[in-house]
Each structure stands twice: as C-alpha cells, then as structure tokens.
C-alpha cells in the first residue's frame, strides 16, 4: 500500500528526514516510536503534503501512484488520512458541514453523486457513538472550545467518516487521560480491517497496550534505525531511548 524509499526531506532548508525506508502492506498496523524532535511529525506532514516540507530525495508510492506528485487534497481523496498531533480550531466552520463537504469532494472526484442526507446522518450517528461524542458538537465550529481529549476524538471521528485506506495517527495519545485513550483506541480497533493500514506515531508504549501493532519501528535522527514486533515497544518502555541514541551516535 505504502512504500517509502530513501526519503530525504527538509524543513526550512534544514534536513530532517535523512534516508527513511518503510513498507506498509494492506491491513498492517505499524507503530513508529522515537525521541522528541527526531522527525516523526515531519514524516506525517510530508506524507500528507504540507507546504514547506520539501522532499529532496527518495520516493513515496501509495497504491501504485507517486504520492509526491499529488496535491494534499488529492492525497486525502485517494485515501490518506492524517490525525493531527495538534488539531486546528476553525471558527465559523461547523464540523457537520466540513464533513459533508469532505465526503462530497471525494465523491465528486470519483464521479459519484453527493451523499444522501439519510446516509450521511446514519454514518455520522454511528461514528459519533464510536468515539462517544455528543451530536451537539457537530453544529459547533470545528474544534473551537473543545478540550484536548475532545479534539483527538474528533480526529478519530473524522477518520471514521472519511473511510481512508491509510490512517496516520500523530501522537493521538499524547495529553489523553485513560478514559479518552480507551475511546480513541477502541475507535481505531473498530476500524481495523484487511484493507486498511495504520501508521501510528507515538512517544509512549501505553497506546500500544490498546492497539496491538504488527510492527514497531524506532526512528532516530530522521530515519528508522530499528524495527521489530511489539516486544520492541516494551523494551523501549523499560530501557528508554538512550541505548538507541548511543548505538546511533
């Protein structure tokens, strides 16, 4: 589904990603862990196509297509979803209209008719229940006045609404209390399927108690320096990142 080959990327002319390789097959859940400032969010932003993240070398192939050739909105419509580390507040734009437009943008691009009201409402209701958000939130401006946990749940809600092929979660667990962590994880687990893949970026092992990854990668200084199964996450939890830093000094 996703093949990242020798990816190099700059942020404000500073090299951050320095030869990153990663393959994700359909249905797989990959976790990326690593110390702060190592480039995890940069990887997520580069995949989503954010302005200012300049790929200097390497390839990203998504579903057989050159992802780097696509605009950010095209990537989203092709099935890439990024749950933001810091979800943005958008005054004056309601979540319900936002989601209708996003769904219809994809349908339009695929030559389909706009979603029917009843179908949309049913999807919305189901997914709101999944992340335990009150329907009232839909009529409020996107993320405005939401607590940290509500914002993260809203990310998972949007992810469920848009039905992506590749879900990238950037530290969705940070700042969540245990209750919200459970809700978010259950949301993700409910969405796991043979076709859908996940790239879960996290700083802590804690999330991986809830979402069992197939692979765990350690990222350091702009590349993946170690890969393994979920026992690697346990080892990082016990020993911290110092041994990784030393081995790659």
């Amino acid at each position: 589904m996703l093949e990242i080959k020798n990816l190099h990327a700059n942020v404000v002319s500073k090299p951050i990603l320095k030869g990153l390789n990663l393959n994700i097959a359909p249905g797989e859940v990959h976790a990326i862990m690593g110390p702060n400032g190592t480039g995890k969010s940069t990887l997520a932003s580069t995949l989503a196509g954010r302005n200012g993240y300049e790929v200097t070398k390497g390839d990203i192939v998504f579903e057989g297509e050159d992802l780097l050739d696509m605009e950010p909105d095209e990537r989203a419509r092709a099935g890439v979803f990024l749950a933001f580390q810091y979800p943005v507040e958008i005054p004056g734009v309601t979540t319900i209209n936002f989601m209708k437009s996003a769904i219809n943008a994809r349908r339009k691009a695929e030559g389909e008719a706009a979603i029917k009201a009843s179908e949309f409402m049913a999807e919305m209701k189901k997914n709101l229940e999944l992340v335990e958000i009150n329907q009232e939130f839909m009529k409020r401006s996107v993320n405005v006045g939401f607590s940290g946990g509500e914002k993260k749940r809203n990310e998972i809600f949007q992810m469920a609404m848009l039905n992506p092929k590749l879900c990238i979660l950037d530290e969705t667990d940070s700042g969540l209390d245990i209750d919200a962590l459970r809700v978010v994880s259950e949301g993700v687990n409910a969405m796991r399927s043979k076709e859908r893949s996940f790239l879960i970026i996290t700083h802590y092992q804690r999330l991986l108690d809830y979402i069992q990854p197939d692979f765990v990668h350690v990222m350091y200084n702009g590349k993946i320096v170690k890969s393994g199964d979920k026992s690697l996450a346990k080892k990082l939890e016990d020993k911290g990142y110092d041994w990784i830093k030393e081995a790659n000094a």
Binding site: N51, D73, I90, G92, A105
Partner: peptide, 22 residues
C-alpha cells in the same frame, strides 16, 4: 486551518473561500 481543511480532501480554492467567508 487551510491545511487542515485540504488534508480532508477539500480542494484548495474551496477551502480558501470557506475560511474567508467564515
């Protein structure tokens, strides 16, 4: 905000118009 909207599949021009309107 613009990137947030676009990253959900909203075309850039539409996202700009929505933010300006709001």
């Amino acid at each position: 905000a613009l990137f947030y909207l676009v990253s959900r599949g909203i075309p850039l021009d539409q996202a700009k118009a929505v933010l300006n309107y709001a």
